[in-house]
Computed example of a mutant assay.
Amino acid sequence: MYCILKILNNNALLAEDSETASERILLGKGIGFGKKAGDYVDSDEKVQVYTPVVRQEQSSAMHVVNTIDPVYIEVAGKIISEAEKVFGSVNRDIILPLADHIAFAAKREQENIFLPNPFILDIKILFGKEFAVAMESRKIIQEMTGYRISDDEAGFIALHIHSGLSNEEVSDTLRTTQIIDESMLIIEKSIGSRIKKESLAYIRLMSHLYYMIVRMKTEEAVNLDLNEFVRLNYPNAGRIAEVVCRNMSRKMQKSMYPEELGFLAIHVQRMIASAEEKK
């Protein structure tokens, strides 16, 4: 049972869970019709229930929902539902940050302001399924608001979806993506050759860098030491990998298991070999 705190529109409510006294957003066709604050409603299989998480400086969900057009909260709910069809489970706490982002994306479209996403290619590679959902979500946004957002904006929505899968803040995912991008530039500069972005080798290297950062965060060790093999056979790749690992540790402010260097160097060596074949 939920006590209505605010009617957002006919299809959206802000309510309080009677058992836990915590705020919830309820979405469902006609759920708010004829209702008023203080009324009680039940949830059923047709009602989607979301936990509205807000930033610390914002006092409550009530404060946030008062600043967002309810249609964008509905849109965010539909996008989360679409993501759940693909991933099975998505943390619904992302509804308000996602709604807030979509509202600003629509405002930029209305004012003909293009916000470039410098990491759009990285997002497509690292979070391909999330990006596919985000691209499909553009139809939802256009149908419900009249605005068609760009691929770059869809990239940012993909990060919100990833946040719902990883329980990682969007800002942290962006920082990870930026560090990976820097690492790729270091490697390209060191080997003196641009790596074809659509190549399998590029995708594998970028994926490897991503999971290196994941292991740093979780303090997970790799199970094979290739450092001595690399030192004897691929010293140049080893030096490049060392620079990348050192930069990564500094940016993440975390130590890295030494065995990561050897694994990365093997990937770097593939890039070196590929560059030499082109000459």
Rank of each mutant, 00 (worst) to 15 (best):
I191Y: 05
Y147A: 11
L174R: 06
L209Q: 05
I161S: 06
V244A: 05
G146W: 10
I195P: 02
R215M: 07
S190T: 02
I213L: 13
N233S: 13
S137T: 08
D225M: 06
E153I: 06
K189L: 04
I179G: 00
F229R: 11
E169M: 09
T218R: 15
Y147V: 07
S150Q: 09
E188A: 05
S163K: 08
S166Y: 06
E168M: 11
V214M: 14
N236E: 15
A154S: 12
M184D: 02
I180G: 00
A158W: 05
Q253C: 08
T173R: 07
L159H: 07
I191N: 01
S207P: 01
S166H: 09
T177S: 11
F156P: 05
M248E: 03
E198F: 02
S190R: 07
V243R: 10
I191G: 04
N223I: 12
T176P: 01
N227S: 10
I240N: 03
R215C: 09
E169P: 00
E143L: 08
S190W: 01
D172L: 10
S199G: 01
G155D: 02
E198I: 01
H160M: 09
D152M: 02
L185C: 05
E198P: 02
D225G: 12
S166E: 14
S183L: 04
L185G: 03
K189C: 01
S249M: 09
T176C: 09
V222P: 00
Y202I: 05
M184G: 00
S163D: 05
K251V: 00
S137W: 06
N247I: 01
S163W: 10
G146H: 07
R215W: 08
L209S: 04
K189S: 13
